[in-house]
C-alpha cells in the first residue's frame, strides 16, 4: 500500500455532448503525490487538467477508476476528502459582503476546524499573509491582489494536508503570479502535498518536483524534470511537452 497523500488509479471521466457524442475528458489517469511535494499537471487548454482536479475535489464524480486523498476514497468518503483538501482555482471566488477575517473564520468552521482554535488560526493566517490592515474591510472593497491573498488564506483556513491549485496564476499579473508561486513553494516546505495544474511551461519548470504531462485526457509521462530530459533527450520543458504530444498523435 502506497503512503502517498494523493493516489489516483485509472481515474476516468466521460462526458456526453450533443454535438461531440461521448467524450473521454480524463482517460485512465494514474498518479501519486506525496507530502512535501509539488506535482505539476502540465497540459494545453482542454487537456483534462481541470476535470481531473475537480474530480479530486469531489465537484465532479468520476465515471471510472478510483482515487484516495489521505486514505479517503473519493466516492466512498467524499466529505473526508473535502476536509483533507484546500482547493483554489481562478474560477473560485470569495463572498463579497463579508470581511477577510469573517471569510477565514467561515471556512475554518465549515471545514470543521476545532472551534476553540479557530480564532488563533485566523490570526495566524492574517499575520502570515499580511492581511491585518484590511482584515475588517469588506472583500468587495479590496483590490484583486488583496483578494488573491485572502483566497489563498481561506484555502488554508482548516490547515489541510493536501492543496489543489487549478491554474491559479491564470488571471494574475506578473508580480502577483510571482508572489503566488513563492507561497506555493512555502506550502511544500511546510509539508503539504500540492497538486498544481498549469499550461505555462516556465511555471512548471520553476515550481514542480515532478511533472505529469497530460494530453487529450491521458497522462503521457510523469517524472522529475531531469527524468523527463533523460527520457526524451530534450532540454527544455516545452520541447519535452511537444515531443510527447506529437508522439501521442502519431
Amino acid at each position: 500500500m502506497s503512503t502517498a497523500s494523493v493516489r489516483i488509479e485509472g481515474l476516468t471521466k466521460v462526458f456526453y455532448d450533443d454535438s461531440r457524442g461521448e467524450v473521454r475528458a480524463v482517460d485512465d489517469v494514474h498518479l501519486e503525490c506525496a507530502s512535501g511535494e509539488i506535482l505539476g499537471l502540465l497540459g494545453a487548454n482542454g487537456a483534462g487538467k481541470t476535470t481531473t482536479l475537480r474530480m479530486l475535489s469531489t465537484v465532479l464524480t468520476p465515471t471510472g477508476g478510483r482515487a484516495w486523498i489521505m486514505g479517503h476514497e473519493l466516492r466512498e468518503e467524499p466529505q473526508d476528502v473535502r476536509l483533507s483538501i484546500g482547493f483554489y482555482s481562478s474560477s473560485t471566488a470569495l463572498y463579497p459582503k463579508i470581511t477577510p477575517r469573517e471569510t477565514l473564520r467561515f471556512f475554518a468552521r465549515v471545514n470543521r476546524y476545532p472551534a476553540e482554535r479557530v480564532e488563533e488560526r485566523v490570526e495566524l493566517l492574517i499575520d502570515r499573509f499580511g492581511l491585518a490592515e484590511y482584515a475588517d474591510s469588506r472583500v468587495e472593497k479590496l483590490s484583486s491582489g488583496m483578494k488573491q491573498k485572502v483566497s489563498i488564506a481561506r484555502t488554508l483556513a482548516h490547515d489541510p494536508p493536501v492543496l489543489i491549485f487549478d491554474e491559479p496564476t491564470v488571471a494574475l499579473d506578473v508580480l502577483n503570479a510571482l508572489e503566488l508561486r513563492k507561497i506555493i513553494a512555502q506550502l511544500r516546505d511546510d509539508g503539504k502535498a500540492v497538486i498544481f495544474s498549469t499550461h505555462v511551461m516556465s511555471e512548471a519548470e520553476q515550481l514542480c518536483d515532478r511533472i505529469a504531462i497530460i494530453h487529450n485526457g491521458r497522462i503521457l509521462a510523469c517524472d522529475t524534470l531531469d527524468g523527463l530530459r533523460g527520457l526524451t533527450g530534450k532540454h527544455y520543458l516545452e520541447e519535452i511537452f511537444v515531443h510527447y504530444a506529437r508522439d501521442s498523435q502519431a
Partner: peptide
C-alpha cells in the same frame, strides 16, 4: 456566477 459555489462545494459541508 461569482464562483463561490465551487468554493463552497469543495469544503467539508455536505
Amino acid at each position: 456566477e461569482r464562483g463561490t459555489l465551487v468554493t463552497l462545494l469543495t469544503t467539508g459541508a455536505t
